[in-house]
């Protein structure tokens, strides 16, 4: 048992030290591509750290959205920077270091340092022996309609947070579209290897997305993780040169994008009209409502993430 503690202690020290180093290198990297690579590595290390502090839900979200989808998004964004045809030089292009950039950097750094000091102060001011809200959540878990405490908090007890998160995601896509999106990239036909990979991987991604969604009701998983995997399927399809038919990119695409937020809003209205407070589901129907919400939210999140990756304007859109 003693040796076990020692191994765990070393494990946690290596993870913590690795996190700090990776974060520092990723931020300080003069080459954007190297920064992205280090960010993905940081995200992976972070999810191991989340596992170690017993938060597998956050680890799953971190690894699916942080390391997986954001990595692909950043790579695609980098390839669109400046030259339309990126080369080795453009990928290793150093960041501009003008006087203004330096002033901005030092301003940001001091602001972040102030936030960090405030956070440390707050953490030190917290009561050390507090139980947190865990016991309260566990006590009212039966009324929530699901057996996973994290899903109960995200979709029932603090449902409005999740509603606002969905709206933020939608707003991000609307922002990209409002700026006109990016011009369509020339679609080169996929080589055989990529084509085969897409054919094998897409069904697995869809199945895993459905599985994560289902798992969310009783174990780590849920709409955001399932949506990220679904979005990854859309990203892979788009990378393999697959395009959505024109007639599905109008109303159908928009309906998919707003399915999650609008169902959420409808439930919010329903609960208010029914005489309860905002998003306070009736306990006997809470389970069904949460599953419906999760399905709609997964579809919307997946579609939004894929559309963000494609990043083309709504006129000449492809995407999921």
């Amino acid at each position: 048992m003693d040796r076990l503690t020692l191994v765990l202690w070393i494990f946690d020290s290596v993870t913590g030290l690795g996190l700090l180093l990776l974060a520092g290198w990723a931020l300080a990297s003069p080459q954007l591509f190297r920064g992205i690579i280090l960010f993905v590595a940081f995200s992976l290390m972070m999810s191991i750290a989340w596992v170690r502090i017993d938060a597998p839900d956050v680890a799953l979200a971190e690894i699916a959205i942080g390391a997986g989808l954001t990595g692909a998004l950043l790579l695609a964004a980098l390839s669109r920077l400046g030259d339309s045809e990126p080369t080795q030089e453009s990928m290793n292009r150093p960041i501009e270091r003008s006087y203004r950039a330096r002033t901005f950097r030092s301003l940001t750094a001091s602001l972040l340092a102030a936030v960090a000091v405030a956070l440390v102060f707050l953490i030190l001011a917290l009561p050390g022996d507090s139980e947190g809200l865990g016991a309260e959540v566990a006590a009212s878990l039966d009324a929530s309609g699901v057996s996973s405490p994290v899903t109960a908090v995200l979709l029932n007890f603090r449902g409005y947070d999740t509603l606002l998160e969905l709206l933020v995601l939608l707003l991000a896509l609307l922002g990209v579209w409002s700026l006109g999106g990016l011009p369509a990239q020339p679609v080169s036909p996929a080589v055989l290897v990529l084509d085969t990979l897409a054919r094998i991987l897409i069904p697995v991604l869809l199945l895993s997305s459905a599985y994560l969604l289902w798992a969310g009701t009783h174990a780590p998983g849920g709409a955001f993780q399932a949506g990220a995997v679904l979005g990854a399927a859309g990203v892979l399809l788009s990378l393999a040169g697959w395009q959505v038919r024109q007639r599905y990119t109008g109303v159908t695409l928009r309906l998919l994008l707003i399915a999650g937020p609008s169902l959420f809003l409808a439930f919010a209205l329903y609960t208010i009209v029914a005489g309860q407070s905002l998003l306070e589901y009736p306990p006997q129907r809470a389970g069904v409502m949460i599953v419906l919400l999760e399905v709609a939210a997964t579809l919307s999140i997946g579609t939004t993430l894929a559309a963000l990756f494609v990043a083309e304007g709504p006129r000449n859109k492809e995407g999921q």
Binding site: L60, A64, G68, G71, A72, L205, L236
Partner: peptide, 10 residues
């Protein structure tokens, strides 16, 4: 599982 799948996409 989630990361093994997404790494291929990246």
């Amino acid at each position: 599982l989630a990361f093994a799948l997404l790494a291929a996409v990246t």
